[in-house]
Simulated assay, not measured.
Amino acid sequence: MSQKKSGDFGTWLMHIFLGFNALIMLYPIIMMALSSFKTNNEIFSAPFALPKSFNLDNFAVIWNETDVPRYFLNSTIVTGISVFVLLVIGTMAAYAVSRYKFRGNIMVSLFFLSGLMLPLRLAIIPLFIQLKALGLVDNLIGLICIYTAMSLPATVFIMTGFLRSLPSELEDSARMDGASELRIMVQIMVPLITPAMVIAGIYNAVPIWNDFFFPLIFIQSPESRTIAQGLTSFFGEYSVNYGVLYAGLTMAALPIMVIFIIQSKRFIAGMTAGAIK
């Protein structure tokens, strides 16, 4: 009986700790969202209070009087295409590395792993020269190429671990039935590693969406700016409309939050499966 009470006490203590930790993590996001409904006077006079009215004036200003919709579209294009290309190329590369035995298999695996150890920001000068020679500076395609190259090693690493855990009998039976290698990968393997693809997608989408460094270096024209870069234009030399700024930040954070909430079950299932395997 005492062991049961001790276990219940430990469970409650863990719940209290996790709840307190969640409150600390969510508090800045909540305050940002609440501040988006305030005016500048409200923010400075009562920064931690609830807004007097939940009006959408700041969001109307953001959407109708600024270039944030364009920035939002640019970030959506860059993030969506980058993640799609990453999942396609990363899945094929991981499938080849994990399911086929060939000379140089280990070297190919080490090549991808080395990409996790070398940050791309260290090669920013030669990278800028190369993209300029290709005509991809101030071009969203250049950003997509950078993010794909930068995130591919992590994607291959995640996908390889899951693919190696699948039994080889699945492929053998499909080959006996006359299925091609492409069909085996697409129709048999890919549905089984969907949780891993969700993990890889969210893992890469968040830093790509929030990235400020590469757009600052490679994007020059205002119409090609991403959301993280474009929101810096709200910081004026003498004054800042913080209510409008917080509205823009809330809109920028909303898509990733919605995607994570929708895919949270698959994300947790994939993380749990990866931990068990």
Rank of each mutant, 00 (worst) to 15 (best):
V68T: 15
P69N: 03
P69T: 01
P69K: 12
R70G: 11
Y71M: 09
Y71E: 03
Y71V: 07
F72W: 04
L73H: 12
N74E: 08
S75V: 02
S75R: 03
S75N: 08
I77C: 09
V78C: 02
T79A: 11
T79V: 13
T79E: 02
G80L: 02
I81L: 06
S82R: 14
S82V: 14
S82Y: 04
V83K: 02
V83M: 09
L86N: 14
L87E: 03
V88N: 01
V88H: 07
V88I: 11
G90R: 04
G90F: 07
G90H: 02
G90D: 14
M92W: 00
M92S: 10
M92I: 10
A93T: 07
A94G: 05
A94S: 10
Y95R: 00
Y95E: 13
Y95S: 09
A96E: 02
V97T: 08
V97L: 03
V97K: 05
V97S: 14
S98N: 02
S98G: 03
R99S: 06
Y100M: 13
Y100C: 00
K101P: 09
K101F: 05
K101V: 14
F102L: 00
R103C: 12
G104L: 13
G104Q: 08
G104H: 07
G104V: 06
N105M: 14
V108F: 06
V108L: 11
S109P: 06
S109V: 13
L110G: 14
F111E: 05
F111W: 13
F111V: 13
F112Q: 09
L113K: 10
G115E: 03
L116R: 01
L116A: 03
L116I: 10
M117K: 01
P119C: 04
L120Q: 10
R121M: 15
R121T: 05
R121H: 14
R121Q: 15
L122V: 05
L122S: 06
A123Q: 10
A123D: 08
A123H: 06
I124A: 05
I124T: 10
I124S: 07
I125Y: 07
I125L: 12
P126V: 00
P126G: 06
P126S: 09
P126H: 05
P126N: 10
L127Y: 14
F128T: 04
I129T: 07
I129P: 07
I129Y: 15
L131E: 04
K132S: 09
K132T: 13
A133Y: 10
A133V: 02
L134N: 13
G135Q: 10
G135R: 14
G135H: 09
L136Y: 02
V137W: 15
V137S: 04
D138A: 03
L140G: 07
L143R: 00
I144H: 04
C145K: 13
C145A: 12
I146P: 06
I146S: 08
Y147C: 03
T148P: 12
T148V: 08
M150Y: 07
L152V: 03
P153F: 01
P153G: 09
A154W: 15
T155R: 00
T155H: 09
V156N: 08
F157N: 07
F157P: 04
I158Q: 08
I158A: 01
M159N: 05
T160K: 14
T160S: 15
T160G: 11
G161R: 08
